[in-house]
Design a protein around this nucleic acid. Structure first.
Lengths: 226, 226
DNA sequence: GAAATTATGTATCATATGTTACAATTTTAA
DNA sequence: TTAAAATTGTAACATATGATACATAATTTC
């Protein structure tokens, strides 16, 4: 079987390279292509991760099996995309989750050595790769920062201040209250209640999806930590 | 001023290379060395980050200025160490925090292009670099997993199950209850209370720093999600 | 435009955790 | 060894949020 260069060219890692460029990089290098059928395991959590995996066709899911054996879906990964780019390297280069096929799926496996070879021979791929891992780090950092806001008030204040354009004090939510509550990790009535309280205190005005900042000062003060 | 190769050789990024190897990699490449005095700003949060910074001598701190202007120390970084390796690349290549000198400090600045050049010409450095960012990602992922445990019971169960050796059911804490509470992000009395409750229910026994697992089954069940 | 569905506002109660305070115990220092 | 300091256990109360239920309002569908 041939390496599906066209699909690779569409991934974030190889973007900017032509199919020919990619073919040249891979010339003679070992690889593996394998098909999996629905619900088949592609990798197990805690498996050592020697290789770079690309979802070439179909979609897979990452699932975490917790202590009791119950399953928890973490995320869906749709082709074409690399799998767990950050887990080939690092101290604990093991899969953090089980990887399971959602449907008939094609996986391209590239040994770590080949990946390193490619990173050293294509500046574009190297930059793409570094960008991908770095973006992931930044995403996670932001997530943690957000999680560090303990109360619903803080989450709202942080969210509203971040989302509202500098020159305005009005914000149209692009998601429903329930979705926002999910995003915050709180229940919908609790979110509504806290918003109502903040409205009563004159911090902001909430009309359905339109939020108006009334007292930026106080919202800022809310976010004081320590 | 010369590049302090010896200090670089001691960083995680250049470990495994001799001083001569490093000198060769840097041969003729541009760089900057600058001294900062105590409390001087080395970089501002939101500054675009073009360069790789190394703390060659002294120590710096990362500080986050929140909306209200209050300061919050994030971490100390002691020489010799690279600074914000993950923020040179990625979507938002900006400093997430202010970088401030703790004392008289020496910073080596290497342009991004030079870093890329080096990554492409030394497999060791490339691997080190990828390992460093990847470890960071894994650290952050774990942190988030941990933060996803909502109740103190869950945190305790997760912590105890993870820390206890497979073949044993006893665990000696290597930190005080207060420190553990801080790590969990909860107050000390709350932690003590929850531990006492779990003891009453026969899940575990707590005697000062010694914790004995009495009912592994139930602890596992506690961690069921969804 | 009426009916059905979905989103939102609000209330009540239960519960987990924070806050504060103090006593009991262990560890450290004099 | 004793005094001082730090750690741990425990209690009473305050508060934030979850759970549940229902009413009201908006939106969609027919």
């Amino acid at each position: 079987m041939e390496i599906p260069f066209a699909q690779l060219a569409a991934t974030n890692i190889f973007q900017g390279l032509s199919v020919e460029d990619i073919a040249e990089l891979f010339d003679g290098k070992p690889f593996r292509i394998k098909e999996y059928s629905r619900d088949e395991y592609i990798a197990f959590s805690h498996d050592v991760c020697h290789d770079m995996l690309f979802v070439v066709k179909g979609s897979v899911r990452g699932e975490m099996t917790d202590f009791s054996g119950k399953k928890l879906k973490i995320e869906d990964i749709l082709a074409p995309r690399p799998l767990a780019a950050a887990f080939i390297f690092g101290k604990e280069n093991r899969f953090p989750v089980d990887i399971i096929a959602n449907e008939q799926v094609t996986i391209l496996t590239i040994p770590r050595d080949v990946l390193i070879y490619i990173l050293q021979h294509s500046q574009v791929v190297l930059q793409n790769y570094l960008n991908a891992i770095s973006s992931r780090t930044q995403f996670l950092s932001n997530k943690i920062r957000f999680l560090s806001f303990k109360t619903i008030r803080e989450k709202i204040a942080n969210y509203v201040l971040n989302q509202t354009p500098r020159d305005s004090n009005k914000l149209m939510l692009n998601q429903s209250q329930s979705e926002l509550a999910d995003f915050f990790g709180v229940t919908r009535p609790s979110l509504a209640r806290t918003m109502a309280e903040m409205e009563e205190e004159g911090l902001l005005r909430v009309e359905r999806r339109e939020i108006t900042i009334l007292d930026k000062e106080k919202l800022n003060k809310l976010l004081n930590k320590l």
